[in-house]
Design a binder for these strands. Structure first.
Lengths: 111, 111
DNA sequence: CCGATCCATCGTTAATCAACGATAATGATG
DNA sequence: CATCATTATCGTTGATTAACGATGGATCGG
């Protein structure tokens, strides 16, 4: 993983970029990236994409984690806007928030 | 951020997907996402993209963080393969690892 | 109304992270 | 060789995370 074949020549231009703080855009991307920065959450997103929608209980059965832990991960994904949940009687049906996932994709793609 | 306009209908198919553990692919994406899951690291990547390359000391000046903290963030980005550093005399010149960043983009894009 | 089911939340514990200053290591310079 | 400059690493502290079991609130079936 330590690629060194790429040239990385030192630039000697003076600091033309002004000192700036961390921008809201940096924060936004970091927040979205953080939402999927855990293997279990990546898997949850992938499961929801495969099935298009899924009741919470099914997700728990498919994950090697306790119900409360899965619920917690789903909450994190929901707060980031990557997933959404819809109450269906006593159950909760989760699915991917298309717009949210698209936003993540766009922010990463334009790096 | 709580989009509820999207339909999320419960599916009643039995669990056709077998219980699987978390795959290496999930881990890989999570690891790459985690590398940019911090505003300072996103900013570092963006700075390196703007300037194409940059000596560590310059990065420190551009960031509102201590030298040791910036160095730590650069290490994390390097270990994830998103950035690479090249020793240039007493300095270290950092630049984005094109292949690594591309891998992150690809994994996110195919979600 | 009661019990059962489903899910979110709470409270706890152990582990990891983020930030810093101080120190060490490396290479250049005199 | 001694010194300076640059960067990585160490050690510490406080904050955050991840995981779990237990609890509680909501809804459905009888």
């Amino acid at each position: 993983m330590e690629d060194q074949n790429q040239s990385c020549k030192p630039c000697e231009q003076g600091s033309t970029i002004p000192v700036s703080h961390i921008s809201p855009s940096d924060e936004a991307l970091a927040e979205l990236a953080w939402a999927i920065a855990h293997p279990a959450r990546v898997k949850l997103v992938r499961l929801l994409l495969e099935r298009s929608a899924c009741v919470c209980g099914e997700l728990v059965e498919l994950m090697p984690l306790a119900q409360s832990t899965v619920s917690q991960h789903l909450k994190i994904l929901k707060e980031a806007g990557i997933v959404q949940g819809e109450i269906d009687g006593p159950r909760v049906c989760y699915c991917v928030n298309i717009a949210g996932l698209a936003r993540l994709k766009a922010l990463v793609a334009e790096l």
